[in-house]
Design a protein around this nucleic acid. Structure first.
Lengths: 140, 140
DNA sequence: ATACAATTTATAATTATTATGATTTGCCTT
DNA sequence: AAGGCAAATCATAATAATTATAAATTGTAT
């Protein structure tokens, strides 16, 4: 999670320009807990950046992802979501309301089991949990 | 994993017709360990079913999936893969050669941890592991 | 064997994402 | 502080997987 200044520095150090669009896209993502899609980001940015283009959002997300500044979340939905928290963590999705929340789990035992059973060198994993969130449990 | 006859019965009991196309699509999937995409199935079926249409493959997979006769595998690739093994199991993907293999892991502890940390009623989960398969380790 | 609803086929539509190219702009150099 | 240029933005077109549509065909109950 970087400040605007830290992101600008980081971009410069990697040979990229720190454009207002890039800073705004990252800031918008860093401010929310909702794991927005590219479209959600675009819609939120439009009021303050009327010239913002859809392709700028996509290109920016692609760059931030390559630089490991954001996570791509593929929870089996029609489009990707993004997360400015790049630390190791998982996601749980509510099957009623569609929200996606962060979750920190200990997957070391599972990785170990996977490595020994498969004989692969395990490099990473993606775990998505699905269920009913507390709020939706109440509504029922 | 059903035989042709069992699948025909099952389809009839659920109000569907047991067409040669449907039986062939399922049989093709059940015969392989490779977790093919719709396109791979189509290409494999074309020689023996020259009239087979792409949309029949898609519609058949959609129906088999709704009837819980196949699993949809979303390993972050550009298209879905399918698996005729519907029992609880995970998948591990080789980042060098792209192969996808089955893996049976004990996720009960992780589900329990997820439920207590998130307060969700956990219904299901999808876990994808990524690494280098034994064959690709040798090649290096 | 017939009839009819379900299915197949071919094609068009949809949707998320990526590519293209002309215009604009950040930023380095002076 | 201004100029120049590579890089970035914007608008639009292209791509690719999947889904929808509708006419022709076919499985199956009678």
């Amino acid at each position: 999670m970087l400040t605007k200044e830290q992101l600008a520095d980081f971009l410069h150090k990697n040979g990229y320009k720190a454009t207002p669009q890039r800073l705004a896209v990252y800031e918008c993502l860093a401010q929310t807990q909702e794991h927005p899609t590219a479209e959600m980001l675009y819609e939120r940015l439009l009021p303050s950046y009327p010239s913002m283009s859809f392709s700028t959002v996509y290109k920016t997300m692609d760059m931030l992802h390559r630089l490991n500044l954001v996570k791509r979340i593929n929870a089996g939905e029609e489009s990707f979501r993004y997360d400015a928290d790049t630390g190791a963590h998982e996601h749980i999705c509510c099957t009623k309301c569609g929200r996606v929340e962060d979750l920190r789990l200990d997957l070391a035992p599972v990785r170990k089991e996977a490595g020994s059973k498969s004989q692969y060198d395990v490099q990473s994993q993606e775990l998505y949990l699905y269920g009913v969130c507390p709020a939706c449990k109440m509504k029922k």
